[in-house]
Write a protein that binds this DNA or RNA. Structure first.
Lengths: 158, 158
DNA sequence: CAAGAAATGATATATTATAACATATCACCC
DNA sequence: GGGTGATATGTTATAATATATCATTTCTTG
């Protein structure tokens, strides 16, 4: 068993730094501009391992004295999700930083209902089963949403 | 290949009647009241094989001259989803009539992005793969959301 | 039929998201 | 290096989805 969720007391600054470094690389590869606003939003999303709502991001930006409006946040989110740097968690209407942006959007999301954290995995068996189920019914997949709610390992044992 | 989506020109009245008959049975078994409002909402949901938003239901009820407000619709939806008679499609913020209400909520939803129809399946391989993925990471499942967007068989061939 | 429980009505408001147009900033060419 | 078109952000308004709260009605059951 390998817990996907980060350990208590891990060095979260490293998560943030590494995510930003990755994002920079992706943007460069895609010839997309990682502007101040996008970087700011991305870094706010990475402040925790939870999913964050657009309005939480807005509040955080405004708390810093910026006069930001909803469209600004939603635009940054659209940019980031289009590049796969952030994923939208449909069942939470919230956004989550992806730590494997080259994963082709086939991931699955574990959402802990106790601590609120989210973890992503790209499980081949799940993808295969989903693809097979689609094939069985003659369905051509464009996108999949697999969100699993429950208790993370920490929260079942503490 | 067995298409889950109903054939063109199928007798949809039978879908509706059968769904209502099933719903009556479930409510009786659960000792829950299938009131006029709940029946009305349920039957509106079953007017098509698409997912319907709460406000589309509200509009339909109001179009019939009823002076219905949002909470009324949401209450009916809550009742129906709690009993498993209706499922919420998270990625659409919309509601869909379940034709196998004893399925334990482990279903997968195929959503056709062209015709808008939704079909439900309960694929054991997918469930098993998801449960295994959860076990691998020490995660205790409470609920799963598996929504697959793409083209139904009709829409790929026509 | 009375009394409590369950359902619905009614009002207000919270939360999530986008449309439309104005302004600012950037990248590139000359 | 300055003009120009493209890209990004600012600004205002509003749409779409959902819930809290309290009042009233309807149902059930003794």
């Amino acid at each position: 068993m390998t817990d996907l969720f980060p350990k208590k007391g891990h060095d979260h600054d490293r998560c943030i730094d590494s995510a930003i470094a990755q994002a920079e690389k992706v943007c460069e590869a895609e010839n997309a501009r990682f502007t101040d606003m996008r970087r700011k939003v991305f870094s706010l999303i990475w402040q925790s391992h939870k999913a964050v709502t657009a309005y939480e991001l807005l509040d955080a930006l405004q708390a810093e004295g910026q006069r930001v409006q909803p469209p600004t946040v939603y635009r940054a989110l659209e940019f980031l999700t289009d590049l796969g740097l952030v994923h939208r968690i449909e069942s939470l209407n919230a956004y989550f930083g992806c730590d494997q942006p080259d994963c082709d959007h086939l991931g699955q999301y574990f959402i802990c209902t106790r601590c609120g954290r989210v973890a992503e995995t790209v499980d081949e068996d799940v993808s295969i089963a989903v693809r097979k189920a689609a094939k069985n019914v003659g369905f051509k997949i464009q996108a999949t949403t697999v969100e699993i709610k429950g208790l993370c390992h920490d929260c079942t044992t503490h």
